[in-house]
Amino acid sequence: MSTIALITGGNRGLGRATALALIDAGHEVIYTHRGDPGEKIDAVPLELTVGDIETYDDFADRLRGVLRDRFGREDFDFLVNNAGVGVHATVAETSVEAFDQLLNVHWRGMFFLTQKLLPLIADHGRIVNLSTGLARFTGDGYAAYASMKGAVEVFTRYLAKELAPRGITANVVAPGPSATDFGGGVLRDNEQVRAGLAKVIALGRVGEPEEIAGVITAMLGHDTRWITGQRIEASGGMHL
């Protein structure tokens, strides 16, 4: 029986790279998107706006239908909470609207989506929640964003403890600067920004999405089954 992974925000960026890495590793993939499934891959797209909690019952019903009709199962194995939005603003500049957007997607929505999906995750399954290197070191204009991710890291430890009797692990992967379209693609396209960041990264460069996807895939692998409640940072040694 094939293993099945559900990735939120799998239509672009780190989510898409992770979907492709998991497919290459022989897993089945279901991914969510907010209306644009992206380039067609060998995976099942399901529309979902993470943060719109009122739609979670309907999403869970549609997910059950896919599991039953396509895979002949009632559960799935891996949950990757990847969906996110970026807001760049100082504490003084952060609006209530921007704060609430970050809260609804990165924290409130992720918390209650995970809660909704717990009955559908198979025993001995895995959960990987995405954080950020900015929860360890600071960067200008990311106080609200990094604070939400700090909450995700605490939540993950509690999740790991609560789900341990079911054999389910829960861990955090915290990427450093990565060349995706997140935040308008500045880390992918702006050579001046990339060069500046490279000076504070031990390995001397910005990361690639495939490298973060490789870490996520490894945390879902059989050989990492004894790791739970941990934060794995993939930042190339930023600000060591």
Results as ranks from 00 to 15, higher is better:
S2V: 07
V87F: 04
D100P: 12
R16K: 15
Y56D: 01
A43D: 07
N129Q: 02
S131F: 01
G125L: 14
Y145G: 00
A60C: 14
G229P: 00
T169P: 14
F182W: 12
S95K: 04
A25K: 05
V128E: 01
V80A: 08
D181N: 05
V200S: 11
A198N: 10
G229H: 00
V85T: 06
P209Y: 08
V85H: 02
E162D: 09
G184N: 12
N129W: 09
P177A: 11
Y145M: 08
T132S: 15
V173Q: 12
R188P: 07
D58W: 05
N104P: 06
E233R: 00
G184A: 12
H106Y: 11
H124S: 02
D223W: 01
A160W: 13
E210H: 05
L22V: 03
A202L: 15
S2T: 12
F111S: 02
T3P: 12
L203D: 01
L240I: 00
R157H: 11
D123Q: 08
E191R: 12
V193Y: 07
Q230Y: 00
A144F: 06
D181S: 09
V44R: 06
M238T: 00
N129V: 04
G13V: 11
I4D: 00
L197K: 03
L103E: 14
I168N: 02
T156A: 11
E210W: 02
A143Y: 05
K149V: 08
G229N: 00
M148Y: 05
G183K: 13
I127D: 10
A19K: 11
R68M: 12
A160P: 04
A25H: 08
K40N: 03
G207A: 11
M110L: 14
L48M: 04
R166P: 15
V200K: 15
K40I: 00
L117F: 09
N11W: 05
V172E: 03
A170R: 07
R68W: 12
M238V: 00
N82F: 01
R73V: 02
L46W: 02
H33C: 05
V172Q: 07
D61Y: 13
D58L: 08
G72P: 05
T132I: 11
Q115E: 05
I53E: 14
G86M: 10
L103M: 13
R62L: 08
V91C: 10
G184C: 14
